[in-house]
């Protein structure tokens, strides 16, 4: 199944003002893998994700989605394979109702209206948001917006799900529901986040980025127990692995 492989080779990227964002990134993600992408603020996580969905094109090096190199001419194909869930769901929900938002992708692919409708129902059902179908997006809570944003991507039937900070701004219950939902997906998943506990729950493999370079790439359990590596990259072990004293009344 080579078409589900994400391959990043010698990728470097600098912002227009010259600030280097990525330098010499080498990563290969295989079919069905669930990979956490962690790093401090400014480590290059979002920039790397934007390369995976073709929002940025490589300046040096290359990115391949399956057999297709990510270039200007292949963006349409790449974006059908890679579904990107943005950090702020408000960026993704721009149509008057939830149903129209979820149907936006399928209709753009050129699916007939009844097939698009079927996909809308399936995707909303899958994320447990079928009851929100006729609601305008600005009337949804943060957790509901996130679920609908994920449904909007799932409706396009991508093979690879790329997510930027999926648990940001969610309350604990919504976060727990999100983890349960994502665990049920069989897609290849790349999750960039500061929520190391979420990575611990969902991803068997973790890539640590620091100042635009890959500092570590391996099993999540090994990486998250290597405190010196995490501290060196501006991170800390997940809360679930940290001893806590708790707050006592004086």
């Amino acid at each position: 199944m080579s078409h589900h492989i994400l391959e990043v080779k010698e990728l470097s990227y600098s912002y227009p003002d010259g600030t280097p964002a990525l330098s010499g990134i080498d990563v290969t993600i295989h079919h069905g893998e669930s990979v956490g992408l962690v790093g401090a603020n400014g480590a290059g996580k979002s920039t790397l994700l934007q390369h995976l969905c073709g929002s940025h094109l490589p300046q040096t090096g290359r990115v391949r989605v399956g057999d297709v190199p990510v270039t200007h001419g292949t963006l349409r194909e790449v974006r059908r394979t890679v579904g990107m869930v943005f950090q702020d769901p408000d960026d993704m929900l721009f149509m008057p109702t939830v149903a129209e938002d979820v149907a936006f992708g399928p209709l753009n692919i050129g699916l007939p209206p009844d097939e698009a409708e079927r996909r809308v129902n399936e995707a909303l059902e899958l994320v447990g948001a079928a009851h929100l179908k006729r609601r305008p997006p600005y009337r949804l809570s943060g957790g509901e917006k996130r679920s609908v944003a994920i449904a909007a991507v799932l409706a396009c039937s991508p093979d690879i799900l790329v997510m930027d900070e999926p648990s940001a701004n969610l309350d604990p219950r919504s976060r727990r529901l999100l983890i349960k939902l994502l665990r049920g997906f069989t897609h290849t998943k790349v999750i960039a986040t500061h929520d190391l506990d979420l990575v611990f729950d969902l991803c068997e493999r973790t890539i640590v980025l620091h100042q635009g370079r890959v500092m570590a790439d391996g099993p999540t359990a090994d990486i998250f127990t290597d405190s010196s590596l995490l501290y060196c990259c501006g991170l800390e072990p997940p809360l679930s692995l940290q001893p806590r004293e708790g707050c006592t009344a004086s």
Binding site: R79, G83, F94, G105
Partner: peptide, 14 residues
């Protein structure tokens, strides 16, 4: 935000 919304639209085939 306009830039991000546009990217999100492109990602879904706009």
């Amino acid at each position: 935000r306009a830039g991000r919304v546009h990217q999100a639209m492109l990602c879904r085939g706009f």
